[in-house]
């Protein structure tokens, strides 16, 4: 489900690896990466700043019902096959009763109280 988001992350990790190996990354690579990120926002017509506001709104709404890890909420726009998607990743916090916490989306370990992401 978050294939694109996680591949993006892996891409970043790979870049860091090469950076460590060869010193600075090439400016062409940086250009490509910056373009890919900015175009995702351009195409979805959601400026990065608005995304931050959406994130705040989502946190406010979800946390009215469930205990979430506010620090690690991720809201991202991705673009695949000419379709823009809003990907939201909301980690759930451990409950007072000690049940294991899952994530709000994906295979949450509390299926009875699972929230779904807009992208699924």
């Amino acid at each position: 489900m978050s294939a694109s988001a996680s591949s993006e992350l892996q891409h970043l990790k790979a870049m860091n690896f090469f950076e460590r190996l060869f010193g600075r990354r090439s400016s062409a690579q940086t250009a490509k990466q910056r373009l890919q990120l900015v175009l995702v926002h351009d195409r979805a017509e959601i400026p990065p700043g608005v995304l931050a506001l959406i994130k705040d709104d989502i946190i406010a709404v979800i946390s009215r019902r469930v205990n979430i890890d506010r620090e690690h909420v991720v809201v991202n726009v991705t673009h695949e096959d000419k379709m823009s998607k809003l990907l939201v990743d909301i980690p759930l916090l451990r409950n007072a009763d000690g049940q294991a916490a899952g994530r709000a989306r994906g295979e949450a370990q509390r299926p009875n109280r699972r929230t779904t992401s807009p992208s699924s």
């Binding site: 090439s26 400016s27 062409a28 690579q29 250009a31 490509k32 373009l35 890919q36 175009l39």
Partner: peptide, 16 residues
């Protein structure tokens, strides 16, 4: 400059 990775390549632009 593409060869020196100072400039976006054709492939880069195609990917984007």
């Amino acid at each position: 400059r593409v060869k020196k990775q100072e400039m976006l390549s054709t492939q880069d632009i195609m990917d984007v």
